[in-house]
Design a protein around this nucleic acid. Structure first.
Lengths: 301, 301
DNA sequence: CTTCCGTGATAACCATGGGCTATGGATGTG
DNA sequence: CACATCCATAGCCCATGGTTATCACGGAAG
């Protein structure tokens, strides 16, 4: 049985809004077009997905069963598109640089870029911000060729990396927080705080930023899941929780209303430049060499 | 960017056959239609997926990047369709019974069914054989309501179960195998054999049937991955490896050319009837009660 | 060299799908 | 009662995806 991904988008939009007219606006189509497509989808699936009352729209049991799957299919397809884009870029000698957070740190990227262009004058770098749901910043699914990411990595065996920076973990707090006044925070003070966590798909990296190994077996309290910098900022000022971050990322979050403080009792974090272990393309290795020349260091192991 | 799943099916078919005419036959469409759709897909992705020579068809780098993603998208959609089917069945008082292997064991299923119909005369059971890539036999993704499966389960916390049978693990061997003559096989004798393994997605269950905890840290040798009974039989007679199985499943594999032998040094396996922990539907619980009445036992824990 | 076969591409055609605007009917609200 | 809101329907139009017939090319055979 076939579908058009558009129909799934439509379905997800209506399921989110529970309102045809608003969903149609969000999708930039007319309301009748949306109604018709949803009906078509219901017909091919052989069951109604929504109960339309004059006054409200509700998901049926079948619709509720479909929703998470529809989201997953759309997400998978998005990844596929990214992978194709990366492969296409590689053909023209462009390298897709995935970033879970920007490398920053005083011109790390320009330093690498200038060294790389010395060797490959035609090389172009395509920068891509990757959702934190993918801890490998697109390396594993092929949507980037090299990536700036945080250690530890769930799929460590498939990757190689150089450590860009080893830096203490700070805690980010809303400035109204009871601990915002402290110069330094003890991690023990944070045990009962709700934390902002990476999505479950981040695996060990999620645990790392929740510092679960410093909690003596007690489950962390998760206030919200975050998959990007702006979400994190909003969640912080919204008081949904606090979160740890590498010192080098402090500038990303210290906008109005948020403060960052050193934390005592935590190991330092490691930020790395990584690529796929099985990637033999010269441009990738040239990038790694350029990074090493710019001061990145091979892992101790 | 949108796609029709049909286009992905077409792409995967051509990528497998590397031949437009044959792929078109397999897909039951005309060859021009297939050519046209592939061209359309290439146009929307902005890059050629195949290099067509007069004499042969090859995947381009972009095509190779797309292929695994396309497969995954199709697979996800298939799961979605199953989930919808299960939800639809539930509306009419039908219960989808997932089976990683058939329950067998002397009329276990009829015994449950007759007890269930005593309580719910209108209940109907829909049996569904589920690919071994999903160790939960469709419970986790919603495509079955109750399931016969093997313990241990990767997502154990999301499931509840009754133990249907606790039975020794046997080894299945091609009858030409050097150990086929033994009455009983020591597990130590099997350490250097290539094994047939469940797909990686089976998680701890894969490890369990490879008996990794009995190997003293040495990596098992995997001769092939199997995701169904027939594949397993073929792999056995093809000499790709040996495999462990629960005693109650021996009848499934002991066709010509394959023998099963008890193994000394392994804990017994546990076959269970499971359902989702958060499933509150009465019919599901009635099924579980019927199973218990038919002799299934709650787990010791 | 010519002929023929197998391959994928192209052309011409047709039914359907998916979009639009306009409108209808039901349900609350002033 | 008039009106606003909201989803469904009707009628229209063009792009899409399918068909059959045919072409263009390369290799194999006569």
């Amino acid at each position: 049985m076939d579908v058009h991904s558009r129909d799934l988008r439509y379905f997800v939009a209506v399921a989110q809004e529970l309102h045809f007219t608003r969903a149609a606006e969000a999708l930039f189509v007319s309301q009748p077009a949306l109604s018709k497509q949803i009906r078509m989808l219901e017909r091919t699936l052989g069951a109604p997905l929504f109960e339309r009352d004059r006054r409200e729209v509700r998901l049926t049991a079948v619709g509720a069963a479909l929703l998470p799957h529809a989201r997953r299919v759309l997400e998978q397809w998005e990844q596929a598109v990214h992978a194709v884009a990366a492969a296409r870029a590689a053909l023209d000698g462009r390298l897709v640089v995935g970033m879970s957070t920007g490398p920053g740190r005083g011109g790390m990227l320009p330093a690498i870029r200038s060294r790389l262009t010395a060797e490959y004058p035609d090389a172009q770098l395509v920068l891509r911000q990757v959702d934190w749901a993918d801890p490998s910043a697109g390396l594993v699914d092929g949507s980037s060729d090299v990536a700036f990411l945080w250690l530890p990595q769930p799929e460590a065996r498939r990757l190689r990396w150089l450590v860009v920076a080893e830096e203490p973990r700070l805690v980010a707090l809303p400035e109204t927080h009871r601990l915002a006044g402290c110069e330094v925070v003890e991690f023990a003070e944070l045990l009962d705080e709700p934390f902002l966590a990476l999505p479950g798909s981040a695996g060990v990296l999620r645990d790392y930023w929740l510092a679960v190994d410093q909690r003596g077996g007690r489950e962390p309290l998760v206030g919200a899941e975050i998959s990007g910098v702006d979400e994190t900022y909003e969640a912080l000022v919204g008081g949904q929780g606090v979160c740890l971050l590498g010192a080098g990322n402090a500038p990303l979050l210290t906008r109005g209303g948020v403060v960052t403080r050193p934390v005592r009792g935590l190991s330092p974090s490691r930020f790395a430049l990584a690529w796929r272990a099985d990637d033999t393309r010269p441009l990738v290795h040239a990038f790694a060499r350029a990074a090493q020349a710019a001061g990145c260091r091979p892992p101790a192991a």
